[in-house]
Amino acid sequence: MPLIPVRLTRNQQAVLDVLNQQAHPISAQELYSLLRERQGIGLATVYRALEILRLRGLAQSRVGASGESLYSPVDHDQHYLTCLHCGQSFPLDHCPIQELAAQLQSSMPFKIYYHTLEFFGLCEPCNQLIE
């Protein structure tokens, strides 16, 4: 998280609030659909807000198997196994590199906001289809 309090615009705060309510990472399009129901907000505004939140260390993004960026708050430390055939992502039950991130944070002059870890391959059903 940021070292100093961050002032957010109304739209940035709205985007962050919706991100915090999601159980899984969400695309900008999905986020836009949810926000549009609550308040008048444009898709370009959602993308700008997401980028600012990312740069301030409040949101993170990962690229799904379809190539679409998926966003979540940085405190959702979730990592995945992603099937290259069907695109389904399977969350890992723990972060295997959390200790490395903490070690790097304490030994380097660099503020780490978040990290990503994703493995790509074939899930069991897709593996059976291809064999």
Rank of each mutant, 00 (worst) to 15 (best):
L55C: 11
Q88F: 02
I41L: 06
Q60M: 13
L50S: 10
P73K: 00
Q78F: 07
R36V: 05
G40S: 08
P73N: 04
F90W: 13
L84N: 14
F90E: 07
D77Y: 15
P91A: 02
L92H: 10
S72G: 12
Q78S: 09
A65T: 14
P73R: 00
A65H: 05
A59F: 10
L84P: 04
T82G: 01
P73T: 12
L84Q: 14
F90T: 11
L58S: 03
G42Q: 13
R48L: 09
H79M: 08
R36K: 06
R54W: 15
S61E: 12
A65Y: 03
L70W: 01
L35I: 07
E51N: 14
G42P: 04
A59G: 10
F90A: 01
R62E: 09
Q78P: 07
S66K: 00
L70K: 01
D75M: 03
R38D: 10
S89K: 01
P91Y: 06
I41Q: 04
G57R: 09
T45I: 09
P91K: 00
G57L: 12
Q60T: 11
I52C: 06
T45C: 03
L58V: 05
L35C: 07
S69L: 09
L50W: 09
G64Q: 02
G87T: 04
Q60V: 10
G57Q: 12
C86V: 07
L84M: 12
A65F: 02
